[in-house]
Design a protein around this nucleic acid. Structure first.
Lengths: 354, 354
DNA sequence: CTGTTAGCGCCTTCAG
DNA sequence: CTGAAGGCGCTAACAG
C-alpha cells in the first residue's frame, strides 16, 4: 500500500497524489478531491521514512534535558511536545543526568536520527558537543549560554529578577542570616543562580557568608544534605534559599525532620515553581520560571531558524528571548524566630527539638 | 557522504560495507578491517532513514503513558529508555491525558512513524485504538488488560498483594474506618485497585462503606478534593488509602491544611512509591510497584515479540508477566486517634483546628 | 496543471 | 566470499 495504490485508485499519477498531500496550490480541485477520497478509502498514511529520506528532513525535534525525573522537566516536555506536535514535528527526548558519556551518546543519537533541530534545556552541557551539532548545520537553542555558536539561539532566563525579589522579601521579613543551597557550581546555570543570590544580598548591604553558601546537586537528597550542614552550624541561618524546588523539598524534609517549624524557625524558598510545590506542607514559597515561555520560545526559535536557514542567521541571532521569573509567596516564609523579642540578635540558640 | 564514499575509500563494493556494518559473519576480516578504518576516518554514520525505508523497521519503540507530569511516569520512562537504548532502539513518548482525541492522535503518530512496537502504560485506553495497532501487526504490550489482542502481551500488576498488606497493616494498628480515594473508575486499572481494596476489607470482615469510597482522578487536586469530602463526613474515616501517590499527597495536603496531624489524627497510604514519597512530611507509607520490572518487562516482551514475529504468537502469548507490589511502611500510618482511651468509639470529634 | 523520470542511501537477492 | 543490480516509498525536476 503506497502512493501508487492511491494514484491508481484516484486515476491520477503519483506526482499528483504527492502534490495533493503536500498541499501544493497548483492541483486541480477536482483531482484533489478524488485523491483525498482514495486516501480516505484506503486509509493510507504516507511513509514518513521515505519522505524523510528524500527530503533530508526527519520532522523530528530533539529535546535534551538534565534528568527527566526532576518534575520541572516533564512540565517542560509537555509544553514542548504540544508546540512541536502542533507544528507537525515529533520529538525525541534524551536525559543527560549530568553524565558526560550520556551527553555524548544523546548528541550522537540526535545526529544519527537526522534531527531537524535540538533544544538543549539542561543545567549545563559540554560545549564541544554543541559544536558537533552546530557543525552539521543543525539549528540549536539553549539556555543561558555564554558562547555563541553560529546557527544557535539563546533563551536567557532572568534569574536576577526573581532571586532579587526573594532576597528582599526575606529581608523585609527581618531575615539577615540567609543561606543558599546551590546546584553544582561547575554548571553555568547553577552558577548564574548562585551569583544572582550573592549580588542581591550585596545590594541590600548584607555580607554573604561563605559557610552559608553550600553546594547541592538539584536533587532532594542534595537539599537534605545541605540543610543538615547548615542547621548544625553554630550560627545557623534563619532562611534558606534553594537553586531549585527539588532542593527546597529536601531542605524542608531535613528541617521538619529535625523538629524545626517552617516558617517559624526556618524560612525556605525554592526555584522553578513545579506543580507539586504548592502541595508541600506548608506550601512552598518559590520563584516561578515560566516553562511555558521556555518551551514555546525554544520551539519558535528552532522553527524560525529552520525556516530562514543559513541566510540571515546573523540578523536573527540577535533576537534572543528573555524568560521572566517572579516570586510566588506561599507559606514557607515568615518572620524569623526571636525577631520580635530580640531586635539585636545575639548568637542563635540553634535548632530546638520540642 | 554515504556508503559509497566508504566503499571507494576501503576499495570494496558497497555491499561489503553494508555487510560489515551489519556484522554479517561472511566477511573477510581483512576487508572488514579496511571498511571499519574507512568509516572511522570519514566519521561516517549510516543513514537511519534509508535503513528504515528499505528494511521496513524504524528501530523505534513507542511508549504511551497517561500523563508525563505524574512523577511515576518519568521514572518509568527513564527505565524504559535505558532498556530500549541498550538494545539499539529509540523511543517515542506520548501522553494521552485521558483524552480520547489525544489517544487517537498518538496512535496515529505511532503508526505513521512505523513504530516497531508499542508499550501502552496508561491507566486506561480506548481498546479500538489498540486494535488499530494490532491490525497493522505491530507488537503490543500493555498493563492489566482484559481483552487479548493477537500480537500483544500483557503485564499484570499484582495489586491485590500490596493493597491487602496495606489494609491489614491498618487493621492491625486498630483502624476500622478506612476510606479509599480511587482513580477514575471507568479506567480498568483504577477499578482493579479499588476492587482489591474492597475485597481486602471484606476478607477481614470489615464492611466497606459507600461514603468512604470516593472517586479521584490520580492527581493531587483530586486527592485534596476527596479528602475534603471525607473529612467533613459526620463519621469520618481514621485512615485513607489512595489509588496513587499523587492522590495521597493531595490528601495529606488537605488533612494537614485542616489542622489534622498525620498519623495521629489520620493515617494515609499511597500507591506507586514515587521517589518523592519519602520526602513528604511525614514520609509517606505507600505500596511500591516496581517500575523497573514494568519497564524491563515491557521492553523484553516487545523485543521477543518482534523477534519471533507472527510464527508462534499463540504459544508466546501465554508467558504473561506479573509485576509484584509490596507495602512500604513509613510515617503516615499509626494508631488511630482515641483508640487507646476509647475502645468503643462513638461519633468522632471531627477535624480540630488548633 | 499533469505525468514521466531520476534519484534519496541503503539492503538484499543473485551471479560470479 | 564479493560485486552488480533492483528496488523500499516518496519528492522534485522536467517535459508535455
Amino acid at each position: 500500500m503506497d502512493i501508487r495504490t492511491v494514484a491508481t485508485r484516484a486515476k491520477v499519477s503519483i506526482a499528483t497524489v504527492s502534490r495533493t498531500i503536500n498541499h501544493h496550490p497548483t492541483v486541480d480541485p477536482v483531482l484533489a478531491k478524488r485523491v483525498w477520497k482514495a486516501i480516505e478509502d484506503l486509509n493510507y498514511f504516507p511513509n514518513t521514512q521515505a519522505r524523510a529520506l528524500v527530503s533530508g528532513k526527519s520532522h523530528t525535534l530533539g529535546l535534551i534535558v538534565s534528568e527527566i525525573t526532576n518534575p520541572f522537566f516533564p512540565e517542560l516536555i509537555q509544553r514542548f511536545e504540544e508546540c512541536a506536535v502542533a507544528r507537525g514535528y515529533e520529538i525525541l527526548i534524551a536525559s543527560t543526568y549530568y553524565d558526560a558519556k550520556k551527553m555524548e551518546s544523546c548528541v550522537r543519537r540526535m545526529i544519527e536520527r537526522k534531527i531537524d533541530g535540538v533544544a538543549v534545556m539542561t543545567f549545563g552541557i559540554e560545549e564541544p558537543l554543541l559544536d558537533r551539532l552546530a557543525n552539521k548545520g543543525i539549528p540549536l537553542v539553549y539556555v543561558d549560554s555564554r558562547s555563541r555558536i553560529a546557527p544557535a539561539r539563546t533563551l536567557n532566563v532572568d534569574y536576577r529578577h526573581g532571586i532579587r525579589q526573594a532576597v528582599q522579601h526575606l529581608a523585609v521579613l527581618g531575615h539577615r542570616k540567609i543561606a543558599f543551597v546551590s546546584g553544582p557550581l561547575h554548571l553555568h546555570t547553577s552558577k548564574l543562580r548562585s551569583d544572582a543570590f550573592v549580588d542581591s544580598l550585596d545590594e541590600i548591604g548584607i555580607q554573604p557568608r561563605q559557610e552559608w553558601l553550600v553546594q547541592g546537586d538539584h536533587t532532594m537528597e542534595g537539599g537534605q544534605e545541605g540543610a543538615k550542614r547548615l542547621l548544625q552550624l553554630d550560627d545557623a541561618p534563619t532562611a534558606i534559599m534553594c537553586s531549585n524546588d527539588m532542593t527546597a523539598i529536601g531542605v524542608m524534609h531535613a528541617a521538619l525532620g529535625a523538629g524545626l517549624r517552617i516558617p517559624a524557625d526556618l524560612s525556605v524558598i525554592g526555584f522553578d515553581d513545579i506543580h507539586i510545590a504548592q502541595f508541600m506542607f506548608p506550601p512552598l514559597t518559590t520563584i516561578r520560571m515560566s516553562c511555558k515561555y521556555l518551551a514555546e520560545g525554544a520551539v519558535a526559535a528552532l522553527c524560525s531558524e529552520m525556516e530562514f536557514g543559513n541566510l540571515e542567521t546573523t540578523t536573527h541571532n540577535r533576537t534572543d528571548v528573555t524568560i521572566p521569573t517572579e516570586l510566588i509567596v506561599r507559606r514557607t516564609t515568615g518572620i524569623p524566630r526571636n525577631t520580635l523579642q530580640d531586635l539585636n540578635p545575639r548568637k542563635s540558640d540553634g535548632p530546638k527539638r520540642p
